[in-house]
Design a binder for these strands. Structure first.
Lengths: 219, 219
DNA sequence: TTTTAATATGACCACCTGGTCATATTATGG
DNA sequence: CCATAATATGACCAGGTGGTCATATTAAAA
């Protein structure tokens, strides 16, 4: 229970490229099998190192996992911060569109890392799972909320929307879109595995959210 | 590989209440631990029957799981069919609202079964997972699509919407809402664990989808 | 009651898991 | 070259898994 949550010094003494190889192999395994089913044996075997070695780097499977996941959270956080900064002053719906596209880009860069997140979402026994999810949820919601409030202040967004529910809808659509992008088999009809037409689909989705589903006169 | 996918005759010879007890215990275990981590040992131990017995009823863990999941799919299918029938002729947005409320009711009646579905969503190694998900996805999408098309024909829904993307948005919001209802810790701010105010929240969400996020003049 | 068929049982099997540790190998610095 | 510290190694451990099967128990038929 009182395992260290950070790698051991030995890990940091490793040549940087070996550090990276180790982390990549672990991310790969966690993304393929989830936390519980991920096998230390498989990881070390793929790395061609002895089993004992990985326990020189990390105290436990849990500690290895936590280090990876924390790194991932930090990366997402930084990414959102940058999108927000770069789009400052732009229209609300443009910012939503850009946030979605940034998410797509993130998954392109770190597909396995994103799949680890998807795994943990519904795996009851990942360590500190609820803490992690609340952390992610919290800053994801707060990010969207801040965009929304700026949009309302600028008069681009209806002011009578319940912020919690509006954020819920946006978050749901964004999150599901990225899930489908990462795992295209979830909804083959969307054809999100095809790069072509991706931006147009994002545009359409944001437009629908903007103007709603109800028929205006004569449409 | 060539295991039977149905229970053995012995299972059907069992008194109906024992059949149900066995299935309930299995659903419970699968919902708590997912497919791979679910333990036959735990199931038989909770049922106070010998391990060998459950292998008189089912050929394998896989066969037990498949039987349960197929049953669940059939139940959802029937539920949606009924909602569609009962709401025939009503306004599109009313039908969406009623579908969502039917989903909430379903989860109230079969919470563990719904959690099994959530587990399978992101567990790569559940048997026939992709087949199941495609089946579920397909009839879920087709259900929403049929409502949408009727709504467009009646002039209640914009006719310039891309059906695939419109269905995606509706499906995303409905699915996420039910996920959050089943697992309230996912987004505590929604307070979906409180029965009070649930209908109002559903109303608000449907209203937002209807009229969109963009500010009309003076709002 | 006797025979036969159906069902229940749990010790047992091979296999895999995360983790340990005494030992071997390599690097470092005097 | 030697001594010491750091790192790498893999046989080994206890504990869990899905699944089997000879045997015991119960039910049905004769």
């Amino acid at each position: 229970m009182d395992t260290e949550l950070t790698p051991r010094q030995t890990f940091f003494n490793l040549p940087p490229d070996k550090q990276q190889r180790v982390l990549e192999a672990a991310v790969q395994e966690f993304s393929e099998r989830g936390y519980q089913q991920a096998s230390i044996n498989t990881i070390v075997s793929r790395l061609n190192i002895a089993k004992g070695s990985i326990y020189q780097y990390f105290d436990s499977k849990k500690s290895l996992f936590l280090f990876i996941f924390n790194q991932g959270i930090a990366m997402v956080r930084q990414m959102l911060k940058q999108v927000k900064k770069e789009s400052q002053g732009e229209d609300f719906f443009t910012r939503v569109r850009k946030s979605l596209m940034a998410g797509v880009e993130f998954i392109d860069k770190h597909p396995a890392l994103y799949r680890v997140y998807l795994r943990i979402l519904f795996e009851r026994d990942s360590p500190l799972r609820e803490d992690f999810l609340q952390t992610i949820r919290l800053f994801s919601r707060e990010y969207i909320l801040s965009l929304l409030e700026e949009g309302q202040a600028r008069g681009e967004v209806r002011k009578d929307l319940d912020p919690v529910l509006a954020v819920f809808i946006l978050d749901a659509v964004l999150d599901k879109f990225l899930q489908n992008y990462a795992l295209p088999y979830l909804d083959p009809a969307l054809e999100l595995n095809e790069k072509k037409g991706l931006e147009e689909k994002i545009d359409s989705i944001v437009t629908m959210l903007r103007q709603g589903f109800a028929a205006a006169d004569g449409i």
